[in-house]
Structure formats: structure tokens, C-alpha cells
């Protein structure tokens, strides 16, 4: 049942990638921009997605994989719903960025580069996001947070938990409304 859901998810993604490819010239120089566009839209590059790109550009799938794995930007597994990036650039390292990363890892029970089994969170390390004066820095869902502290991490997760509960309550409320309306 769950596998089926995943399958159709992948199916939908591939179809949308197929639809988007013709926007790009059939030219090898478009390889990286195409991969970037796919990741921007779908958060990661699946094997099948890369095969589509290879077919489209008429190059071998191993070429595509070779280029994609060379660059740190590309991800090959779906990330969590909330993406956490901990900066380990020089300034952040000196300010104890590794301790921040460890705290996230411990809290979520995963290592850097992994996603929690429920696909809620993923943790990555990055090298300098350009706010060194605010070190240590973490980027949570595209929001840069400066002067990171373990206590801020606690607050962050509390906020996420709260959000989730509110969403649940809202959904439940909507269902109730729908039932009341019928």
C-alpha cells in the first residue's frame, strides 16, 4: 500500500520532468542547468530522472551520473520535509559549528547526509553560507539562523511540533466541518 503510494509519487515526478525537458536546448552544456532545475522542483535526482535526462541529451546515463556525483549540490535521495543545513565554514568551525551539527544529529537520531525514517527532517553540512559574522549559522528551510545555540535547536523543534499539531487540528476541523456540512 505504502509502496504503491511511493511508486505513483515517482511516476508523477518523472512525468513532470518529461514535460519540462523540452524547455532546454538539446545540448550537453544544458546538463547541469537541467539537473539543477529538476532538483529545484523535486528536491533530488532519482536514477530514473537521470536516465530521462541522458536520453534527452543523447548521452550515456553513466555520464550524467558522473557529472551529478561530482558536484556537492546534488542529492540522490528525497530529503526531509524540513531541511536543516549546518554551516561548517571556517568561522562557524571556530565558533563551534560541529557541536551544533552533533546536537541536530543526536536530537533526530540520524547522521549528517541522512533523512529521518518519517521523512520529516534531513540534516546536511554546508561550507559557509556567507554570514560568518553571525557564526555559528544554520539554515533551516531556507531561513538563515545566526548565533546558533543548542537551546535554539530545542526551540526550533518545539515550533515544528506546534506547527504539526496545528495542521492536524486544522485538518480535523476541516473534516468535522465537511461532515457537519453534508
Amino acid at each position: 500500500m505504502k509502496d504503491d503510494a511511493r511508486l505513483s509519487e515517482e511516476e508523477t515526478m518523472l512525468r513532470s520532468i518529461e514535460a519540462m525537458l523540452p524547455r532546454f536546448e538539446k545540448n550537453r552544456a544544458q546538463l547541469i542547468p537541467i539537473l539543477q532545475a529538476i532538483q529545484e522542483e523535486h528536491q533530488y535526482l532519482s536514477r530514473e530522472a537521470m536516465r530521462l535526462v541522458a536520453d534527452y541529451l543523447e548521452i550515456s546515463p553513466s555520464e550524467v551520473l558522473g557529472v551529478a556525483t561530482f558536484y556537492n549540490q546534488f542529492r540522490f535521495h528525497p530529503p526531509g520535509r524540513h531541511q536543516i543545513k549546518v554551516c561548517l565554514g571556517t568561522a562557524c568551525h571556530v565558533a563551534g559549528g560541529d557541536i551544533i551539527l552533533e546536537n541536530f544529529e543526536r536530537k533526530l537520531g540520524i547522521r549528517e547526509g541522512e533523512t529521518t525514517p518519517d521523512r520529516e527532517y534531513s540534516v546536511e553540512r554546508v561550507a559557509c553560507v556567507g554570514c560568518c559574522a553571525l557564526a555559528p549559522v544554520a539554515v533551516v528551510d531556507d531561513k538563515v539562523i545566526g548565533h546558533m545555540q543548542p537551546s535554539k535547536i530545542e526551540g526550533l523543534f518545539l515550533q515544528f511540533d506546534l506547527q504539526r499539531e496545528q495542521e492536524k487540528a486544522r485538518e480535523a476541523g476541516e473534516e468535522a466541518d465537511a461532515q457537519a456540512g453534508s
Binding site: 550537453r28 552544456a29 544544458q30 547541469i32 542547468p33 558522473g66 561530482f70 558536484y71 556537492n72
Partner: peptide
């Protein structure tokens, strides 16, 4: 604009050019 893909070595000019050409940098 061309967006790099996160490889430090691509700051080196010949690697940078490789990457614009769609290759490993």
C-alpha cells in the same frame, strides 16, 4: 548567469570552464 553546483575546485578557472561546458569540474 550560470549557477555553480557546489564544488570548491570549480573556482579554478579551467575547472570552471569545464563545468559550464557540462562536464565534471
Amino acid at each position: 548567469v550560470f549557477q555553480g553546483s557546489g564544488a570548491f575546485v570549480c573556482g579554478e578557472e579551467t575547472a570552471l570552464i569545464q563545468s559550464i561546458e557540462g562536464r565534471r569540474g
